[in-house]
Design a protein around this nucleic acid. Structure first.
Lengths: 131, 131
DNA sequence: AATATTTTGTTATAATATAACATTACCTTC
DNA sequence: GAAGGTAATGTTATATTATAACAAAATATT
């Protein structure tokens, strides 16, 4: 018997678990060294898990940091992500600015391109780093 | 006597020239191999030029493609960039949606982070690739 | 010319990511 | 439960992207 929504596999769970426990975006090779005790010993094992986790919306990639973060809640629109990133400490938060979200989602065409997704990275300095 | 606005150096001009002639985002090692006949033989020479060109706003990095494009016009706000990217052919265009630009620029605080810049990458399929 | 500064050149290596193939686990269906 | 298929994992090697560290040359300043 087959479940409609696929369960995550062992390696995917291990990787997701580590990302969720981190309070910052984490890099692939950092994940690798941190889960090596759980049996993942080579980059492809981590990258395969990451790819799947992104597909199902459990995590996002922060492109400007080459790092990965857990989706902070049910990911309504996995193709549209908004993050605020502290340039000083790399602390990252997923933004839920409804107005902004709506604004971006409503853009249907841009430069003749039919839009299907977006990634917005907002940079600045967080309170902790400013003081 | 010292100019207020610094001229670009030889290597910077070579790299910028190649990027401007390309009609797509180009990768660092692609730049390297294409300007090797002009004397740039090693990655640091290209990366140094790229860093400077980004600083002065002549080019932007497309993070999701690890590629570089020339700024399409006078870069009013180098810390805020908006690009539309065709997922199929990587054709990229800098977006000048005034409303969107204003919206993003008006965000002064997000999650306790004082914003100083942003990078928005819009994904979709261009007309050519759709047909 | 002597000195400082910036730019360039060079070697080596770090960091990020994927290709390709071997092996194991796990379902089915007979 | 054996046979065969599919998905997941393991493994080796290598491709791609980027920077550190130092040497040499060019340029500017005194």
């Amino acid at each position: 018997m087959k479940d409609k929504k696929k369960e995550l596999t062992k390696n995917q769970k291990i990787v997701l678990d580590f990302i969720q426990k981190s309070n910052k975006p984490v890099k692939a090779y950092s994940i690798l060294s941190n889960v090596s005790k759980k049996g993942l010993k080579a980059p492809p094992q981590v990258y395969r898990a990451l790819e799947k986790l992104m597909e199902v919306g459990e995590i996002h990639k922060i492109e400007s940091l080459n790092s990965f973060v857990a989706c902070n809640s049910k990911c309504i629109e996995p193709n549209g992500t908004i993050f605020s990133i502290c340039k000083s400490c790399d602390q990252t938060k997923e933004v839920s600015n409804t107005e902004l979200f709506k604004f971006l989602s409503d853009i249907k065409d841009m430069n003749g391109i039919e839009l299907s997704g977006y990634n917005l990275e907002l940079f600045g300095t967080c309170k902790t780093c400013k003081t």
